[in-house]
Design a protein around this nucleic acid. Structure first.
Lengths: 204, 204
DNA sequence: GCTCAATCTTGACGATGGAAAGAGGCAGAA
DNA sequence: TTCTGCCTCTTTCCATCGTCAAGATTGAGC
């Protein structure tokens, strides 16, 4: 078969190329429209080529989800550091970073927090997901360092659930159907401030 | 082909049978493992039989999701009516019903609030989903009838997001990995009471 | 009892994930 | 340098999927 220089027999960076094309495909077609063969096509290789780099389609999805959690952690940390207003401001900033990542990568976000991802049971996936949870718990700890363990857990649950729930409902179309992007951001920020206020008050 | 009395040529209740087998299959295999042919197999008909009752696999999924929202509304109403403690107690009860439905039908719940469901654009689906949102808004209205519209919306977002977020994270394995079922219920109730407290306080 | 439309079966098509077998190319040993 | 072995990729094949088209079956209404 004829083969140009741009398409040598050995790709060289196929794993990375598959991750890149896979991520784009995921956002385009959603989880149910995601196919391994289309990933391979976009990477310019045959449909069986991915097999060497990823044992199965779930293995590739697992990698995408794990990298998503890494990026999510970065987004949370970046926004938290940029925020003003001390520990409570940092908590709000974390929420902003969380929502911004989800809004920018809706299909990936859904994959990361889907039941299917949970079944993947990849070590990298559980590790990176745990890092995100640790970041969140640390932010709560910073706001109410002297509260009891029970209250800390309750506020961790509460804060995490409200941020995650809000952006999830928004991306699923259950919230703000006809609102403008600007109005939705305002609603998000309003929710974040109410959340932070609740946490602060719980600290005594 | 030989055909027993129990398997006549015309099924008679095929639509309902497909909904039933489909729902069971969904919980067993998850969204990605859901196939139309397996639904047909379990209903005892050929693989092409469903076509007459459902235009496509998405059409069947849409029906499942719509019925899920109906059941969710019933679960919320039932628990809210059973609850004591006035309007605030009713709000908590609604949350209990919401979480109980989700815990009892995790895959269906995920389907109902998935991006794919959003793409289905079925009229029945949007209607039943809207009913659930209206129930929730009414419960908030009952707790803080004299608050401003802005505060009502903020608390509707906040309450809905925290309940939805908590049970979603729980079902996805992001919360309470090794906790007992009893401990998780306690965490859920703790979150619900914190949620109700925040709403009540927001009312002035 | 006949007709006909609704319902179901059979068979086919293109697409998918995965396995098996072979071809190509690089790196280290001779 | 040449050869050898292994990693990578292609080709081919299989079972399964959703969907369509065509034929078989049945019950309801004339």
């Amino acid at each position: 078969m004829e083969r140009s220089k741009a398409q040598p027999y050995h790709h060289g960076q196929l794993r990375e190329a598959l991750v890149t094309s896979g991520r784009a495909l995921l956002e385009e077609k959603g989880i149910r429209g995601f196919t391994l063969r289309e990933c391979a096509r976009r990477a310019g290789v045959s449909h069986a080529a991915p097999a060497y780099h990823f044992a199965s389609i779930d293995d590739l999805l697992s990698e995408l989800a794990a990298r998503g959690f890494d990026e999510l952690a970065v987004a949370m940390t970046t926004e938290a550091n940029r925020a003003e207003g001390g520990a409570a401001g940092g908590l709000i900033g974390q929420g902003v970073g969380y929502m911004a990542f989800a809004a920018g990568n809706p299909a990936l976000f859904q994959l990361m927090f889907s039941r299917e991802a949970n079944r993947l049971e990849s070590a990298a996936l559980t590790t990176t997901a745990e890092k995100v949870r640790a970041l969140h718990a640390a932010a709560i700890e910073g706001v109410i360092p002297h509260a009891s363990g029970e209250i800390k857990q309750r506020m961790t649950d509460f804060a995490g659930a409200s941020v995650h729930g809000f952006i999830s409902l928004l991306l699923d179309g259950q919230i703000g159907g006809k609102d403008s992007s600007r109005a939705l951001k305002a609603r998000g920020l309003s929710l974040l401030s109410a959340m932070a206020e609740t946490v602060v008050r719980a600290g005594g």
